[in-house]
Amino acid sequence: RELEAFAERFKQRRIKLGVTQADVGSALANLKIPGVGSLSQSTICRFESLTLSHNNMIALKPILQAWLEEAEGAQREKMNKP
């Protein structure tokens, strides 16, 4: 249940930020998480549509959570600048 809720929230917030699935995939490489490079657009799509295996969903959740927090933080900074 929690994974499904996160996937839905992730998709809504990604769209609100105006970021494509492909952008998310390539931006993950910038997070410098050990062992994590970029991901394909189709992987992000399959995460959002819950068609990845349960284990893959569990593995990707903290990575996508980290990206989302960073992206939303950058958005807030941009909006707070005069």
Rank of each mutant, 00 (worst) to 15 (best):
L39R: 02
P62A: 03
N80W: 08
L50T: 09
L3V: 09
L3Y: 07
S26V: 09
I33T: 06
L52G: 02
E72G: 04
K11T: 11
R9A: 15
R9E: 11
G25S: 12
I58N: 13
G73A: 13
I44L: 06
I33V: 14
V19E: 03
E77A: 09
S26I: 05
A74R: 11
N56C: 15
M57L: 10
A5S: 12
I15C: 09
L17G: 01
S49F: 01
N55Y: 07
P82E: 12
F47W: 03
Q75Y: 08
S38E: 13
A27Q: 09
Q65E: 15
K78V: 11
L50M: 14
S53K: 04
S49C: 08
P62I: 01
E2T: 05
V36E: 07
M57G: 02
W67M: 02
L52M: 11
Q12Y: 06
I63W: 08
A66C: 09
S53Y: 06
A66P: 02
I33G: 04
V24T: 02
P82L: 07
Q41F: 15
Q65D: 13
N30A: 13
T43A: 09
A59Y: 08
G18F: 01
S26H: 12
E4F: 09
M79Y: 11
E70R: 09
Q12C: 02
L3Q: 04
E69F: 05
T51I: 05
S26P: 05
V24N: 02
L39K: 03
E4M: 14
A5M: 13
K16P: 00
A7K: 02
F10A: 01
R76M: 14
M57I: 06
R76V: 11
K11H: 15
K78H: 13
Q75M: 10
D23N: 08
Q12H: 07
I63L: 07
S42N: 13
E8A: 11
A74N: 11
E69T: 08
A22L: 06
A59L: 10
L68G: 01
L52W: 02
R13A: 10
R76Q: 12
Q12N: 14
A66T: 11
Q12R: 06
S26Q: 15
V24P: 00
E77V: 12
R14N: 00
E8D: 06
T43K: 04
L31W: 09
L17N: 02
Q12E: 13
G35K: 12
R46H: 05
R46W: 03
S49L: 05
K16C: 12
I44W: 01
V36N: 03
T51R: 11
A74S: 12
N80G: 12
E48M: 00
S40C: 11
L28C: 10
S49Q: 14
S49I: 02
G73S: 10
M57Y: 04
A27C: 13
L64Q: 02
Q65S: 11
L50R: 13
R46G: 10
P82V: 09
W67F: 13
G25I: 09
G37C: 09
A22C: 07
I63P: 05
V24S: 01
Q41E: 14
K11V: 06
N55T: 14
N56F: 06
I15L: 11
T51W: 02
D23T: 07
R14F: 00
K81W: 13
F47L: 06
F6S: 02
D23Y: 07
E69G: 05
E72T: 04
D23M: 11
T20A: 09
N80L: 10
N55A: 13
L17K: 02
I44R: 00
K16N: 13
S38P: 07
R9G: 11
L3S: 03
N55M: 11
G37M: 06
K16S: 13
P62E: 03
Q12T: 11
P34N: 06
P34C: 05
L68H: 03
K81Y: 05
F6N: 01
A29E: 14
L64Y: 06
E77G: 10
E8R: 12
R13V: 08
N55F: 05
L17F: 04
A7C: 11
I44D: 00
A5E: 13
V24M: 04
P62L: 02
I44G: 00
N30F: 14
A27G: 06
L3D: 03
G18T: 00
G18V: 05
I33M: 09
L68W: 01
W67N: 01
G73M: 08
L39Q: 03
L64S: 01
E8Q: 11
K32L: 07
R14V: 00
L50I: 06
N56Y: 15
F47P: 01
G35S: 04
N30S: 15
E48K: 01
L39G: 04
Q75E: 11
L64E: 01
A7P: 02
K11Q: 07
L50D: 03
L31S: 08
K11A: 10
A5C: 06
R14Q: 00
V24C: 03
A29K: 13
E77I: 08
